[in-house]
């Protein structure tokens, strides 16, 4: 039996593989504080959502979270739940932004807003599930500052990727 695959399936598989690779490489980088990391895999999700629409972004993000956690051995662990909640938060923001009227926002806006959505959703889940104490809130400004900085960075990279994608040299 052969499963029929369409063009979108292949595209999703390729891009998800790329996102998973970035995700795993990034997890090997040291972090100054738990919860702070560049989130470069989000570049792929932003590019895909802007180029092919948010449903495909959900596919890439979902596959990244599940396959990434299977590869790193964190599937269904607290790490996985945090990773999933971050992905959900960031996707909700991306979906919301894709319905903006007019010209909407560029990759920069997507990058910043989704990074902050990611960190807030993750923080909220961590707060509800693990440590319900107001002292934890004092770390939130730092996390959001990092999200803003890294969001600008991923947005910038995503806009460069989109630029290259649109450029006639590739067509």
């Amino acid at each position: 039996m052969q499963i029929q695959t369409c063009r979108d399936d292949h595209r999703i598989a390729w891009l998800a593989a790329l996102a998973i690779t970035i995700h795993i490489v990034e997890s090997a980088l040291p972090s100054p504080l738990p919860g702070i990391k560049p989130g470069l895999a989000n570049v792929i999700v932003i590019v895909v959502a802007m180029r092919f629409g948010w449903p495909m972004g959900i596919w890439i993000s979902g596959l990244r979270v599940i396959a990434g956690s299977l590869l790193m051995g964190t599937f269904l662990s607290p790490t996985f739940i945090l990773s999933l909640s971050g992905a959900v938060g960031s996707l909700l923001v991306i979906i919301g932004l894709s319905y903006l009227p007019g010209r909407g926002c560029t990759a920069i806006g997507y990058g910043v807003a989704s990074a902050i959505g990611h960190v807030l959703a993750q923080f909220w889940v961590a707060y509800q599930m693990f440590i319900q104490h107001e002292g934890l809130l004092r770390i939130l400004p730092i996390l959001v500052t990092a999200a803003l900085g890294f969001g600008l960075m991923t947005g910038f990279i995503a806009s460069k990727v989109l630029e290259q994608w649109e450029s006639p040299a590739l067509k």
Partner: peptide, 20 residues
């Protein structure tokens, strides 16, 4: 070279800075 931004981008950045 910074990529061009739209009004929505600027609003998002302003909101983010305000929130922060």
């Amino acid at each position: 070279q910074l990529p061009p931004t739209t009004l929505a981008d600027k609003i998002i950045l302003l909101l983010a800075l305000g929130f922060l």
